[in-house]
């Protein structure tokens, strides 16, 4: 199937024609942090957690010193893999960058893990644990955001939205319903529902829709199903997010 390869942190990674760097890496069992990437969807490239450096060079100066020239930075989810390229992911610089990006998301929204039904299986939380994020560092926005409980089965808590657009993509591409979209821009960008009232209850979302089950954080929640798994037995209590990277490998039929 594949006879071409590139190097990720000096390890040879095979890839198939058309695969992006993260897709090939995850298929090979190498974890690259990510939030907006999802194995069932085409890469999106907005969270930037998967940023890598490509083809850094080391040169020797006239006075004999070796200097590293950093390669270009790119989102590994949207950058096509190319034979022979050298990709860096687990470097101090990139780990620090990723911590900063997680901290940015943590202060932008209102992320109070102790009262969140998604705690223990939240991708943002799991990733923050893995990166060793001990604090949000920046001043909190304390954004004033709404909760929408108008739907019979689904609750929306916009406080936790990280704008990964997975629900938007799932509803448009898999469910063919277009229940979610985005409005505003910049720091006013926000999720909206496909109804004149703006309420989720006035849309045709069903609890079984992909869009209702794809949220990586605690925005789209199923009513009557909170806190079902005890503390200590939840997904990231048991194993870190970076464990078993092939679980994130792209499935064949991406929409």
């Amino acid at each position: 199937m594949s006879n071409e390869s590139f190097f990720l942190d000096e390890e040879e990674i095979p890839f198939a024609e058309g695969q992006t760097i993260i897709q090939a890496a995850l298929s090979a069992g190498k974890y690259i942090p990510h939030l907006c990437y999802h194995p069932e969807f085409k890469p999106h490239g907005s969270c930037k957690l998967c940023t890598v450096r490509i083809d850094s060079r080391t040169i020797t100066t006239e006075d004999g010193q070796t200097v590293k020239i950093p390669g270009r930075a790119a989102a590994s989810c949207t950058t096509p893999a190319q034979a022979g390229q050298h990709v860096e992911s687990e470097t101090d610089e990139l780990r620090d960058l990723r911590r900063t990006l997680v901290q940015m998301l943590l202060v932008e929204g209102n992320h109070y893990c102790p009262s969140c039904e998604k705690s223990g299986k939240c991708m943002l939380q799991g990733l923050a644990y893995d990166l060793g994020v001990m604090d949000p560092h920046f001043p909190q926005y304390f954004s004033k955001r709404e909760v929408d409980a108008s739907h019979a089965d689904i609750l929306l808590d916009f406080n936790r939205c990280i704008l990964c657009e997975l629900c938007v993509r799932a509803s448009a591409e898999m469910d063919k319903k277009n229940v979610f979209s985005l409005s505003g821009r910049g720091n006013t960008k926000h999720l909206i529902c496909n109804s004149e009232s703006g309420m989720l209850g006035d849309t045709n979302l069903a609890a079984t829709d992909k869009a209702a089950n794809v949220c990586p954080v605690g925005v789209i929640l199923h009513k009557r199903h909170g806190f079902e798994v005890p503390y200590g037995q939840r997904r990231f209590d048991k194993a870190p997010i970076s464990d078993n990277a092939v679980q994130y490998a792209p499935v064949k039929e991406q929409v």
Partner: peptide, 15 residues
């Protein structure tokens, strides 16, 4: 703890 680090539950009054 959470409250010292991001305001925690008491900060939920901030809305």
């Amino acid at each position: 703890g959470a409250c010292a680090i991001n305001g925690g539950l008491p900060a939920q009054r901030n809305s």
